[in-house]
Amino acid sequence: MEQVVQQIVNGLALGFIYALIALGYSLVYGIIRLINFAHGDIIMVGAYVALFSYLILGVGFVPALLIAMVTCSLLGVTIERVAYKPLREAPRIAALITAIGVSFLLEYGFQLFFGPQQRAFPEFFKTHHYKLGILSVTNEQILILSIAVVLMLLLNFIVMKTKTGMAMRAVSFDKDAARLMGINVDNTISATFALGTALAAAAGMLLGLYYQQIDPLMGFTPGLKAFISAVIGGIGSIPGAMIGGLVLGITEVLVVSLGYSTLKDGVAFLLLILVLLIRPRGIFGEKVVEKV
């Protein structure tokens, strides 16, 4: 029992990282109905930017985090403008294929420029173990949790309370109506990409802390899992993405602790397919009625 609780605590950190990525996925999906496969690779770019700002500029944790988030926002907006915008009116498959292309370009571009090998991610802090009754928690876990929670609250505030957030919700509800109401749809979509990719960059840095190493292909699997989290929670829903991320993170840690680490990735997909079959809208998703 103790061990199970301990594993759940360990899973929380991973779950919150997934949730952070899932939020970005969900935002972007909500606004342009595109599974942005490259979202996972933004995680990787974020981790690399953080690493290089530490190595080259010698900055600490918070500046590195901010640099990574800003750089990735710019990258995200550029990707949207160059690769996705021309295809906004094209069939969905076209945009999806392009997204796969962008994803591969980032992965193998980084392999070409920075080498395919794994790199050690800097330990920004000395690891401390804290005893909380029967449980042991590290300061890194606490950091991951608190950063994730702060970013999620911030996102929730932006989406719910600010003008940009309102525009984002309007565009995701009905693009044409939003345009008629005087909302600049292009800028709103850019803002959404900026927000989503900033979250992904933060997640990339946290993932670097969690695994202590990074490589050009590191983002793809967490990206997919974050998408699975978003689907489990109900795509387009902020609490849904959070719950989905936690469910997946904890399940995964439990599967590994039971000794089935090779089945880890299979389990995530199994969970996905079960959810899609039983409740395709996810836990918090809304039913969509198709107009005829």
Partner: peptide, 19 residues
């Protein structure tokens, strides 16, 4: 290493310019 990069650029360009 350029193979995958060429592939991905091809994917993107084909979709945008020659679907």
């Amino acid at each position: 290493q350029m193979r995958m990069i060429i592939y991905s650029i091809l994917l993107i360009l084909m979709m945008i310019f020659q679907p």
